[in-house]
Write a protein that binds this DNA or RNA. Structure first.
Lengths: 164, 164
DNA sequence: ATTTTTGCAAACCATTTGCAGCTGG
DNA sequence: CCAGCTGCAAATGGTTTGCAAAAAT
């Protein structure tokens, strides 16, 4: 039997690059070398990442972009709907948003990795609760914390510094 | 019909004070004037609060406690199970834990207030997803974001400074 | 040519920490 | 008395900002 919580695909018409271009043009902003490099780096992989991790990836790819520019660009990418932000401890973690379905997360407290799953029932619950409280819901976050399969199997290879 | 997501009561045998005393004694720590003042202030109300808000409450009650002591004591109260922490934006928000049932939250993006509700189905989903991913779950957070009834009704009285 | 963007250094803000003096038991 | 605690000031760490130089249109 298939994983009943697997993510379903979402079709999109524009590439992230095209979408970002449109976003920039619509606000009189410019496509710079740095923004291009950051955009490429962000969409060259699918893992969750934070500003500092992204900065390192950019460095290692041999490009020179300052940290402030990374932060500024991340805000723009979020603003234009390409990225989605999540606060984990004192760190902001990003994931692809454009072309990705809404989903929720399992968070491993040992290796600090995030796993994604999709569950329609959550939306149902959200609506039911919102109705009860006359709340105008426009989103939710469901994070299950615990220890992932790998880490449970004795292998303790910590992945990043403490995130929580 | 009753609110089906209302919180059910939980009985406890010790008062927060007693429990804190036990916690302190068990670690060779001392009950100081400051810790007593903070504990009283924390359990004199039931709202969610952050370190700075607590510090102000203490001040306004006419007591002198330093910010570092507030932070240190909050960590102890969390450690001993009296308080529960939640990260909201870049701020740590606390709520009573001892004597309170597990629950989840509605978060109003307008007035930044938190509302609580209880929904057993969430635990079921948590377990089902965890099983699928061979994840050892030991908790979850479900936060519904949106606008609360009051704020929807045109009254915009912002409550605190920006939390997200 | 004009306006936006960048990089640097400094500012910020919530939280933590080193340390000398104070205090609870 | 002495270990543990407090307050102060300074450090921390992630993120933002002011500003002058550089780049995009």
């Amino acid at each position: 039997m298939e994983n009943s919580f697997a993510l379903r695909k979402v079709e999109v018409s524009l590439s992230p690059q095209e979408r970002f271009e449109e976003y920039l043009q619509s606000r009189g902003k410019r496509m710079t070398h740095q923004r291009r490099v950051i955009l490429e780096t962000v969409f060259a992989q699918h893992e969750h990442f934070d500003a500092d991790g992204l900065w390192e990836m950019v460095q290692q790819a041999g490009h020179q972009v300052s940290r402030p520019t990374v932060y500024r660009t991340l805000n723009e990418l979020e603003d234009c709907g390409l990225l989605r932000r999540m606060q984990l401890g004192n760190r902001r973690v990003y994931e692809h948003d454009y072309g990705y379905p809404d989903h929720d997360h399992l968070y491993c407290e040992r290796c600090h990795k995030l796993f994604e799953f999709q569950c329609e029932e959550l939306e149902r619950i959200r609506e039911a609760v919102a109705r009860e409280y006359q709340f105008r819901a426009n989103g939710h976050r469901f994070i299950i914390t615990g220890v992932c399969a790998q880490c449970s199997q004795g292998r303790r290879r910590p992945r990043r510094l403490e995130l929580v």
